[in-house]
Write a protein that binds this DNA or RNA. Structure first.
Lengths: 229, 229
DNA sequence: CTCCATTAATGAATGTTATTCATTTTTTAT
DNA sequence: ATAAAAAATGAATAACATTCATTAATGGAG
């Protein structure tokens, strides 16, 4: 929220737009779309009521801008970290955790979506639809790679796998917010990732590998124990 | 919608309440919560604007009544059919199909939930929360049985399994409505059910796991034994 | 059947917000 | 410094939800 010293007209206008979006995000995320008034947003932004309408056509359009901003940040930060990870499992695990923590932090923002997309018909092809497509594409690419390398269940159609992945988290985030148990996030992510990673065919193989791991650990313990003799 | 001939005062009042709920359901499901006006509902119900408020405290309360009615019908019809089915797989498959078809038919009704539950804090313990709990309990019971009999993956915590089940469908229903491809429902259900059910191979796998457990126990015994040396 | 107390229904009036727009202030280019 | 252009303002308007004073319907007592 720092006002830059250099203040061309364009910069000032863009800065004010950001200010309004930030104020709107904060209030929307507190009270939800319906309970938030434009007057409140204007006041929080330090402008007159009418000024908000110079930047956004109406309340709906402002909410759209807030969601757009949210998706952009979400997509950028996700892609950036995913690129630094190498294995499929690491990537999927990170993506799940990243999605959950962000969605839980700004839950009410995403809840506004249905209020804004009045008719499903016009949603396909809209800017928000593209943003969402762009975001889930990160998962799609990981899944495609993972399926080729055998790390991810290939028995599932890509779009079904994606819906299971994101749908589980959307619902799960509500449950966890309700229970106020953020420590459940780790359990949830582990189980979701486990479900996505183990394909029926490789289940047996994975289990064998796990058993082998445990055998080795057990052997190590025996070694340590006998070393004391 | 049929007015009974016998018309005690109580019957007339209850009939009118049903009429208003039906009108509200229809319009809400068409235009969504925000775009629906109370005047429209009153007109469709054949009563004056003020009359609606004799039956429901306000718009939110009316929407709540519509959702409550929806959940009741959903729960009753689901439980009834589930009781007639014998195997876990049949039950889970029916429940998924039943949930998806109902949710897709009255999508906008469920979309109203966030608009109505302004604050997550007060949701737990609310009547709607109880209704939802009551509904998903059908799945919970099936899952519990299935886990005991080995038909369902027991590697998942019950609440996580439930969130994956319903969350996947919530998201999936949106995707399918968007794509306007109702024939995808079967594919989706099959894949979701397949993901939840444990594969036949796991009997062998379970045995292997047991062996690993016993090995670890043996290691513990060795540790204890060597500790005494 | 008639009358009156009670319950139900009505729709015009009120209140709350979103949105507009005539007016004022600020900025930019000359 | 000044006028045209751009931004900003906030009072006025409009669209609804909700209220409430008034009217209508109902049912029981006599």
């Amino acid at each position: 929220m720092s006002m830059p010293k250099t203040k061309t007209r364009r910069e000032k206008v863009e800065h004010r737009e950001e200010t309004i979006i930030e104020a709107a995000r904060e209030i929307f995320n507190h009270r939800g779309y319906r309970k938030t008034t434009m007057a409140e947003i204007a006041k929080q932004s330090g402008v007159a009521d009418g000024t908000v309408y110079l930047y956004f056509k109406n309340k709906e359009d402002l909410a759209r801008a807030v969601i757009t901003d949210f998706y952009r940040r979400l997509t950028d930060s996700a892609q950036q970290r995913v690129d630094q990870l190498s294995t499929t499992k690491e990537r999927v695990t990170f993506l799940a955790r990243h999605h959950l923590s962000n969605v839980m932090a700004e839950f009410k923002i995403l809840e506004m979506l249905p209020a804004i997309n009045v008719n499903m018909e016009s949603y396909g092809g809209s800017a928000l639809f593209d943003l969402n497509k762009n975001y889930v594409a990160i998962f799609d690419r990981i899944a495609k790679d993972g399926m080729q390398s055998g790390a991810i269940k290939s028995s599932l159609t890509p779009w079904v796998l994606r819906d299971i992945f994101y749908g589980s988290m959307e619902y799960g985030s509500r449950t966890m917010l309700l229970k106020s148990r953020p420590e459940d996030i780790d359990d949830f992510v582990d189980q979701l990732v486990g479900m996505v990673m183990s394909s029926p065919k490789s289940a047996k193989a994975n289990l064998d590998a796990t058993i082998a791991d445990r055998l080795e650990l057990a052997a190590t313990r025996i070694e340590k124990a006998t070393a004391k003799l």
